[in-house]
Write a protein that binds this DNA or RNA. Structure first.
Lengths: 226, 226
DNA sequence: CCGTTTTCAGTGACTTTGTCACCGGATTCC
DNA sequence: GGAATCCGGTGACAAAGTCACTGAAAACGG
């Protein structure tokens, strides 16, 4: 079976499961595809369960009453989506939204099957623990950034981080995407980028920011703009 | 043994442990007292392990480079302190600080013993999972508040919440404590309280805020100050 | 291909909140 | 009964969010 092979390859604790557990898991798992832009968690009451990304990209974010969005993290191929299964954990009581940033193929383990596994299998419980700790770390990091760092520092750090591995030293993103990842406002990012441009740190064009002076941009992080 | 009785009474999954697990836990656990104001986690490299509060009160907070503090949550008698054991979880990589707000007596399960238990016992792993989810929920809630709500709303909500159960409808706290719980600045809280006072919503005195018009204060939450 | 719609960036005016530098009065501690 | 510390208050300022609107660039739909 194709799907079992994928499960064995992608589910990190597969090799720690008993034969019976593997069988019940195999019986429950199935594949699913989400289209780019589709909301997969948050608005409806549907409880997808645990997702394993075969390909594509998901975005998890907070949404305010007034419609402001703050990105918490992205999930890429090979990663696990835990909070699509949050409905089965009574201690998780916040509203998180998850969209597909690209067309995304997943292995889906429905909530009942995953819940059962989580309650019966120590390796799975420990793995969920690891995931939870990782997400908590992500959120705490973002919180520290928002509370304690200035926008110029954070934006500079984000640009440098994102430009890594890009041949042109460029970041492909709209100001709005950057603002959401920074927990800031689009206009504030636009203005800060303009300022960076006047200082010859970056070159702006629609949908792209090219870093022209990485060293000076790094200096912004250490020594915020005067 | 006095201490074993306490452990059985206070440790939530005691009755789900095997005899061997109870014995190794009993051999490792001991009592400890922290004095009011003492820092118990964050600065040093000490790794206390898992703490069960017999009495007193702990405060967990973030600390910025410049010394600003933001309170994440309090722990009261009967509650568990997980992050004093964070050193043994490699996926937890943020700096959290914990102080004793009052003289506090705890049962301490040193990190090695607790780690072993967490890795071997499904009930313990599941319980740690619950704790982690609870803290994640706390942090997400705070983050939403900070990102999406105005200070007047948050302060009004905090005052009303804290005054619950007080006969005088009063909150005993300094402006600084309130500011830290709101992730805000002391001066901003002082000014907002002053404003509330001019609007006859509260009456201020040193270390205490008496709510004189709870209904109007509730209205601030629904309809932020004009 | 062209016109329409949507997305993206830019900007000014204003509000909210955080920061810095003080001050003075209350409380606590020798 | 002083000295030190804590707490609250305040003005001036800076950073960043909000609101309202603009025009240009891309995407879409016949």
């Amino acid at each position: 079976m194709e799907i079992l092979e994928e499960l064995a390859r992608l589910f990190p604790v597969w090799d720690k499961l008993s034969v019976a557990e593997r069988e019940s898991l195999a019986a429950a798992v199935h594949t699913r595809r989400f289209s780019k832009g589709e909301n997969i968690h948050g608005t409806g009451e549907s409880c997808l369960g645990f997702l394993i990304l075969k390909s594509g990209r998901l975005r998890a974010y907070l949404l305010s009453d007034s419609g402001r969005e703050v990105t918490l993290y992205y999930l890429n191929a090979g990663e696990m989506c835990l909070f699509s299964a949050s409905c089965m954990m009574r201690n998780i009581q916040f509203d998180i939204y998850i969209d597909a940033k690209e067309d995304t193929d997943v292995l889906q383990i429905p909530a009942p099957a995953f819940k059962n596994l989580m309650e019966k299998s120590l390796p799975v419980s420990r793995y969920v623990n690891d995931l939870m700790a990782t997400h908590l770390t992500d959120v705490m990091w973002l919180m520290e950034q928002i509370l304690f760092k200035r926008l110029d520092e954070r934006l500079a750090a984000l640009l440098l981080e994102d430009a890594k591995g890009s041949p042109e030293n460029a970041v492909t993103a709209t100001h709005e995407e950057l603002a959401e990842r920074l927990g800031s406002a689009r206009e504030a990012v636009t203005r800060m980028l303009k300022y960076f441009q006047t200082e010859k740190l970056v070159k702006l064009s629609r949908g792209e920011i090219r870093i022209t002076d990485p060293a000076a941009l790094s200096a912004v992080i250490a020594e915020p703009r005067t």
